[in-house]
Simulated scan of single mutants.
Amino acid sequence: MTGTSDPGQDPTRTEHLSGAGGPGFGTFRFWFDSQRWEWSPEVYIMHGYRPGVVEPTTELLLAHKHPEDRDQVAESIARSIREGQPFSSQHRFLDTAGDEHQVMIVSERILDAGGNAVGTRGYYIDLSEAIDNAERQTLDAVVPEVVEARAVIEQAKGVLILMYSITADQAFRLLTWRSQETGTELRDIAEALIAAVQKNPPTPPSSVAAFDRLLLGIHRQVPEES
Rank of each mutant, 00 (worst) to 15 (best):
T2H: 02
G3S: 05
S5F: 08
S5C: 02
S5V: 01
D10S: 05
T14A: 15
G19L: 15
A20M: 10
G24P: 00
G26N: 05
F28L: 02
F28Y: 14
F30G: 05
W31F: 15
D33F: 06
R36H: 14
R36D: 13
E38C: 06
W39H: 07
S40P: 13
P41W: 13
E42S: 15
V43C: 08
V43E: 04
I45S: 13
M46G: 03
M46S: 03
Y49C: 02
P51N: 11
P51V: 03
G52R: 04
G52V: 08
A63I: 04
P67C: 05
D69W: 11
Q72K: 12
V73P: 01
E75P: 00
S76Q: 13
R79Y: 04
I81H: 06
E83V: 01
G84F: 06
S89D: 11
F93N: 03
F93T: 07
D95G: 01
A97V: 02
G98P: 08
D99Y: 06
D99N: 07
E100H: 01
E100N: 02
H101Y: 05
V103G: 01
M104E: 01
V106T: 14
V106C: 10
S107K: 05
I110H: 01
A113G: 13
G115T: 07
V118D: 02
G119H: 11
T120R: 12
Y123C: 07
Y124M: 09
Y124N: 12
I125D: 04
I125V: 15
I125T: 04
I125H: 10
I125P: 02
D126R: 08
D126K: 07
L127P: 03
A130E: 11
N133Q: 11
A134M: 12
A134Q: 14
E135I: 15
E135K: 15
L139E: 07
L139V: 03
D140R: 14
D140E: 14
D140V: 08
A141N: 12
V146L: 15
V147H: 13
I153W: 06
I153D: 03
E154S: 14
Q155C: 10
Q155Y: 11
K157P: 03
G158F: 14
G158D: 14
L160D: 01
I161L: 08
I161C: 08
M163L: 09
Y164C: 02
S165T: 09
I166W: 08
T167A: 04
Q170G: 06
Q170N: 04
F172N: 09
L174T: 00
L174I: 09
W177R: 08
W177N: 00
R178G: 01
R178V: 14
E181R: 13
G183V: 13
E185I: 04
L186P: 09
R187I: 08
D188H: 09
E191Y: 05
L193E: 10
L193M: 15
I194N: 00
A195M: 08
A195C: 00
V197W: 11
K199E: 15
P202L: 10
T203D: 00
T203N: 01
P204A: 03
P204D: 06
V208L: 06
A210V: 08
R213D: 10
L214W: 12
G217R: 05
H219F: 10
V222A: 14
P223I: 15
E224P: 05
E224Q: 14
S226T: 09
